[in-house]
Computed example of a mutant assay.
Amino acid sequence: MKNTYKLPQREERGGLFRLINRFLRMDSSMSEVIHVRFLPQILFLAFLCLLYIGNRHYAEKKVRDINHLENEVEDLRADYTTLKADFMYESKQSEVAKRAAELGLKESKELPVLIKQVETK
Results as ranks from 00 to 15, higher is better:
residue 27 D to W: 03
residue 7 L to I: 00
residue 80 Y to F: 14
residue 107 E to C: 03
residue 47 F to V: 06
residue 121 K to T: 14
residue 67 N to A: 03
residue 78 A to N: 10
residue 61 K to V: 04
residue 120 T to D: 13
residue 117 Q to C: 11
residue 23 F to I: 14
residue 52 Y to Q: 07
residue 48 L to A: 04
residue 55 N to R: 04
residue 91 S to D: 09
residue 94 S to Y: 04
residue 64 R to I: 01
residue 115 I to F: 06
residue 24 L to S: 13
residue 93 Q to L: 15
residue 47 F to S: 12
residue 19 L to D: 09
residue 89 Y to W: 14
residue 37 R to T: 15
residue 3 N to P: 01
residue 82 T to V: 14
residue 89 Y to R: 10
residue 48 L to Q: 07
residue 26 M to H: 11
residue 75 D to Q: 12
residue 2 K to G: 08
residue 55 N to T: 05
residue 64 R to Y: 03
residue 95 E to M: 07
residue 41 Q to C: 13
residue 82 T to P: 07
residue 44 F to K: 15
residue 7 L to M: 06
residue 79 D to S: 05
residue 26 M to K: 12
residue 25 R to W: 07
residue 111 L to H: 12
residue 47 F to G: 02
residue 104 G to F: 00
residue 96 V to M: 02
residue 55 N to A: 02
residue 26 M to D: 07
residue 103 L to N: 03
residue 22 R to M: 09
residue 75 D to R: 13
residue 10 R to P: 00
residue 10 R to Q: 08
residue 34 I to L: 05
residue 106 K to T: 06
residue 14 G to V: 12
residue 70 E to G: 01
residue 81 T to E: 08
residue 19 L to N: 05
residue 89 Y to C: 08
residue 65 D to H: 06
residue 50 L to P: 00
residue 57 H to G: 03
residue 106 K to Y: 04
residue 29 S to M: 10
residue 26 M to R: 10
residue 41 Q to L: 15
residue 66 I to G: 04
residue 116 K to Q: 14
residue 8 P to E: 01
residue 17 F to L: 10
residue 90 E to N: 08
residue 29 S to D: 14
residue 101 A to C: 02
residue 95 E to I: 07
residue 109 K to Q: 13
residue 106 K to I: 05
residue 88 M to T: 11
residue 2 K to S: 13
residue 90 E to S: 08
residue 16 L to P: 10
residue 65 D to G: 05
residue 64 R to H: 01
residue 15 G to R: 08
residue 53 I to P: 00
residue 31 S to L: 15
residue 93 Q to W: 12
residue 15 G to S: 11
residue 119 E to S: 09
residue 16 L to M: 14
residue 21 N to I: 03
residue 37 R to C: 15
residue 102 E to A: 07
residue 26 M to Y: 11
residue 35 H to L: 08
residue 77 R to D: 03
residue 77 R to W: 00
residue 112 P to V: 14
residue 30 M to G: 10
residue 33 V to L: 01
residue 54 G to Q: 00
residue 70 E to R: 08
residue 69 L to W: 09
residue 51 L to H: 01
residue 64 R to Q: 03
residue 47 F to P: 03
residue 112 P to L: 14
residue 2 K to M: 11
residue 19 L to W: 12
residue 35 H to C: 06
residue 23 F to P: 04
residue 72 E to V: 03
residue 57 H to E: 06
residue 46 A to G: 10
residue 64 R to E: 02
residue 62 K to I: 12
residue 113 V to F: 04
residue 10 R to N: 00
residue 14 G to S: 15
residue 72 E to Y: 06
residue 82 T to F: 15
residue 79 D to I: 08
residue 84 K to S: 08
residue 30 M to E: 12
residue 15 G to Q: 07
residue 53 I to F: 06
residue 42 I to D: 02
residue 71 N to E: 04
residue 32 E to P: 01
residue 66 I to K: 07
residue 26 M to Q: 14
residue 16 L to H: 09
residue 114 L to D: 13
residue 22 R to A: 10
